[in-house]
Amino acid sequence: MKKLFPVLVLAATTLAGCETDVNLPEPEHTPRIALRYLLSNATPTQQSEAMQAFNQLYVSHSQRMFDARPLQGRPDATVEILDATGTVVERFRQATNKQWQTYPRPRYEPGYYEPTMNFAAQPGQTYTLRGRLPGFEAVESQLTMPARPQIERATYTQRPPGDYGQLRGRLSLVLTDPAATADYYVVIGKLYDTQGRPYGDLMTEDTNTEFGNVGETFTLSSLYNDYYSSLAPYPDTNVNGRQFTLSSNVVSSTSYGGSNVPVPAYLELQVLNLTADAYKFYQSRQRYQDTEDNPFAEPAPLYSNIRNGYGFFGGMSGTTYRIQL
């Protein structure tokens, strides 16, 4: 939580041209568990490395408003996922660094956990998360997994390459939205070479699309565990129960350098449908970041759906569509 009270006091006294000290009483606080986790309809072993890191369970706890110590994660949590019958379908253990993993770094940053049962949630089914920490009240949250996105077709039309030879094109994606539910779509694009190896990411070119805005253009998302501004979900508010199209000019990023760069062979689109709670959390996180270092901004609290605690338990169901280049 931002420490706004001292900043506001300083700003107020500076503007008034006085040096009056104001003592503010600290609000009462009961320490509670804080966690985040995103449940997927794909098993962890089926998820990409970026997706595994993005979904990773993190457990910490709250602290007093005026406590300036860096908040640390907790390595001693017990967290389980249960299905509608009360059967435990997933358990977690402390995470270990993978060879590819640069962020987060569980070895140096406690609080990260990895699943042990390789569970994949089923769309339409209800699941409960339960978490415990020694000395804290247990927490719980429940969700119903959203339907998998229904992709009708997708096309990619090549455009002239960029100034540095990047692959550029026009992407168009047609989805059919179910009428009975509220849906929140995320689209991720990746390129692969002829050997099926990652070639690079596909990004929207020259866009100012705001979070949650569906218009004539849309923004591809990227998965970064601590940079939620790279996530661009689209609610079905204006397209509920209808077929709709998302289109965008896109450009590639590549991890290759030098000469003899391989040619990308195909484009893979991953379309995700988020639960409403996940959408609200990421939306609140974006608003929180937008107010950073602004003492006069309106409060931007983070959305939470954890009973007796803080954080969020969200779900996502995904569909993959491949386009040959």
Rank of each mutant, 00 (worst) to 15 (best):
P106D: 09
R91I: 04
P149Q: 06
Y164R: 13
T144K: 12
A84T: 09
G111Y: 11
P115G: 10
R159E: 04
M145F: 07
L82G: 00
T96H: 09
A120F: 09
Q122A: 06
T116R: 04
R153F: 02
T96P: 01
Y108K: 06
P149G: 01
K98V: 03
N97S: 09
R132I: 00
V88H: 10
G131H: 10
P123T: 07
Y113K: 02
R91D: 12
F119V: 12
P110V: 11
G86M: 08
A147K: 04
R130W: 02
G124S: 05
R91Y: 10
A121T: 02
D163F: 00
D83K: 10
T87H: 06
R153D: 12
Q122T: 13
A121N: 03
A121R: 08
T157C: 00
T87K: 15
V88P: 05
R148E: 14
G124F: 03
Q125R: 15
Y112K: 06
G124P: 05
A95G: 05
R91V: 08
P161A: 15
M117D: 13
R91P: 04
L133H: 03
P149W: 05
T85Q: 14
F136G: 00
A138V: 09
Y156V: 11
P104T: 13
E109S: 10
Q150T: 11
G131T: 08
R107E: 15
I151T: 03
T155V: 10
V89T: 07
R91F: 06
W100G: 08
A154M: 01
R148S: 12
A84M: 01
G124Y: 02
P115L: 07
P161F: 14
V89D: 08
G124L: 05
Y103T: 15
A147G: 02
P104A: 09
E140T: 14
E140I: 08
R148P: 02
V139K: 01
R132G: 01
D83E: 02
Q142S: 13
V139N: 04
Q142N: 09
S141E: 06
P110D: 11
P134G: 01
R91S: 15
N97V: 03
E140K: 12
P104Y: 08
A138H: 12
Q94V: 15
T116P: 01
P149C: 02
P115F: 03
F92V: 01
Y103W: 13
G162T: 01
G86V: 07
R130S: 01
V88L: 09
L82K: 13
T144F: 06
